[in-house]
Nucleic acid binder design. Structure first.
Lengths: 121, 121
DNA sequence: CGGCATCCGGCAAGATACTG
DNA sequence: CAGTATCTTGCCGGATGCCG
């Protein structure tokens, strides 16, 4: 669902959620924060494939939508920052959980299909 | 969540689902088919913003993953085709439903945030 | 460490036109 | 109506480098 930029027709509930969750790593990031991974470096360690810059971008987008909040420790050296889910962010968890659950349950199947597709090309 | 093409790291359940649902209109299409909208024209009517070509592309991708099946009526003039959810497709419905539910519940909030963002730029 | 600036490539998706 | 072929484009995200 992470996808491309979203249908502007926000009448449909689906599109509304898409608008907020669209971004290659947003669901992963939300899930990670929910699990207690709060600092950008840690997020990058948890999701190595996502470049720090991208993580940062997506965090700010999520912040704009009130899904996460940023807490800065100004006196900390080196600089320390933490992200938390807001109540609104917590309310999206059922969506993220559903995504994770289906993916986990059907991982083998999907991987199988992917392999088959690759071997054809 | 519809998003860009997905993390190849299919260890994470989230990425697995992303792999299957990524595409600007896939969740909408799945939801529509589930509601009994089966023909491409009807789907286009239901989702006017999605060009027929794109709907077709995404249908084929969903077909590759075994989420939908195509039924052709060869003797029908004009040509008639119908798409159905497979059992695997039905199993994704909880995800789609969760997406729709959250979006519907928070539509006003999200629209509000979007407006605020626009007026700033 | 956190995060902004910049440059660039890829690819999904829009537009259009054409077959069966 | 269903679907393909082309061409074009918007823009997300990857890569690097630098600053506080």
């Amino acid at each position: 669902m992470y996808e491309r930029k979203i249908p502007e027709d926000l009448d449909c509930g689906i599109n509304v959620t898409m608008k907020v969750l669209s971004g290659k790593w947003k669901p992963c990031i939300i899930d990670s924060i929910h699990r207690g991974i709060r600092r950008p470096v840690e997020l990058h360690a948890a999701i190595p494939a996502a470049a720090p810059r991208v993580i940062n971008m997506q965090l700010r987008e999520l912040e704009e939508f009130g899904i996460v909040t940023k807490k800065v420790y100004p006196d900390s050296v080196p600089l320390k920052v933490e992200y938390y889910l807001t109540p609104m962010g917590e309310s999206v968890m059922p969506v993220v959980t559903a995504i994770d659950k289906w993916g986990t349950a059907n991982k083998d199947y999907v991987v199988g299909v992917c392999r088959a597709m690759e071997s054809v090309e």
